[in-house]
Computed example of a mutant assay.
Amino acid sequence: MSKVHKFVITNPDICIACNACMKACVKHAYIRGKLSKARLDVLSLESGKMPNQCRQCDDAPCANVCPTGALRIDNACVELCEEICIGCKLCTIACPYGAIHVDAECPPSVRDEWESNLEAGCVSGLKSIAIKCDLCAGIETGPACVGVCPTGALVMIDPVLEECKFGKKIKGDMAPFLKAVVPNANIENIPAPEVKKPKEPKPAPAPETSESTKEEA
């Protein structure tokens, strides 16, 4: 069965693990009124470097175990409603990619109490909720991580429409990677990789004229 949900994935061959995607993720989460935490985690392993984030599974095991319906399949992806998440962590156990974690953000009203009770593990007013990639829902330009990647390693794939959203600069051939990820999709809007212009050789320095040569002349 072919995949139907749209998702963001990274080509590890051209990822440089610069963390620009994580910074953009936090910034745009704040702009959208979400918890100011990164929805992806950049991993540097022996097998390669790439951000790990929600793959928007078609069967969504995280949504199947969510007791409140905070995780649900809608708009061709797995959505998360932060307002009704209770932070039970069942989704973190069910996720096959380890792409969901539970985190919290301290509001100013309880910051003093939070700082004085760090070891307690429980502070009034501090609610832990699930954190996962939501494809930057609410932003017309799409996922912020895709647009900010300096090598174009991140791409958002819509396997049903057979379209992709790429970054501004693509510094590698994405065709073989996309064929491996979505073999049944005929994606045609793949941009050509940016070719780095070779540096022009510096002109050779002029030969120095010795003092003896000047005198003879």
Score class of each variant (00 low, 15 high):
residue 132 K to I: 10
residue 55 R to K: 13
residue 31 I to P: 00
residue 173 D to N: 15
residue 154 L to K: 04
residue 62 C to G: 03
residue 3 K to W: 03
residue 133 C to S: 05
residue 126 L to I: 15
residue 120 A to S: 14
residue 203 P to L: 12
residue 198 P to Q: 09
residue 132 K to F: 10
residue 140 E to H: 04
residue 122 C to I: 11
residue 195 V to P: 00
residue 217 A to H: 07
residue 123 V to F: 03
residue 60 A to C: 11
residue 178 L to D: 05
residue 46 E to F: 11
residue 29 A to G: 14
residue 19 N to M: 12
residue 47 S to T: 13
residue 197 K to H: 09
residue 58 D to F: 02
residue 32 R to H: 12
residue 94 A to I: 05
residue 161 L to Y: 00
residue 17 A to Y: 01
residue 4 V to L: 13
residue 190 I to F: 04
residue 44 S to K: 13
residue 181 V to W: 02
residue 148 V to R: 04
residue 44 S to T: 12
residue 119 E to S: 13
residue 82 E to H: 04
residue 22 M to R: 06
residue 51 P to F: 02
residue 185 A to G: 08
residue 167 G to C: 06
residue 21 C to T: 01
residue 129 I to V: 13
residue 213 T to N: 10
residue 2 S to M: 13
residue 153 A to L: 05
residue 96 P to Q: 11
residue 125 G to C: 10
residue 174 M to P: 01
residue 141 T to I: 12
residue 103 D to L: 06
residue 71 L to R: 05
residue 190 I to G: 05
residue 9 I to S: 01
residue 170 I to W: 01
residue 51 P to K: 01
residue 10 T to L: 02
residue 8 V to W: 02
residue 26 V to A: 13
residue 17 A to T: 01
residue 160 V to K: 09
residue 81 C to E: 11
residue 96 P to V: 11
residue 85 C to D: 04
residue 178 L to E: 07
residue 177 F to Y: 12
residue 205 P to G: 10
residue 78 V to D: 02
residue 172 G to D: 06
residue 73 I to W: 00
residue 78 V to T: 08
residue 165 K to F: 10
residue 211 E to R: 10
residue 144 A to I: 02
residue 11 N to D: 15
residue 42 V to R: 03
residue 149 C to T: 06
residue 166 F to E: 00
residue 206 A to G: 05
residue 89 K to P: 00
residue 164 C to I: 14
residue 40 L to C: 06
residue 192 A to V: 12
residue 138 G to Q: 04
residue 108 P to C: 09
residue 199 K to G: 15
residue 199 K to Q: 15
residue 200 E to V: 13
residue 63 A to K: 04
residue 212 S to P: 00
residue 27 K to T: 15
residue 61 P to C: 09
residue 46 E to R: 11
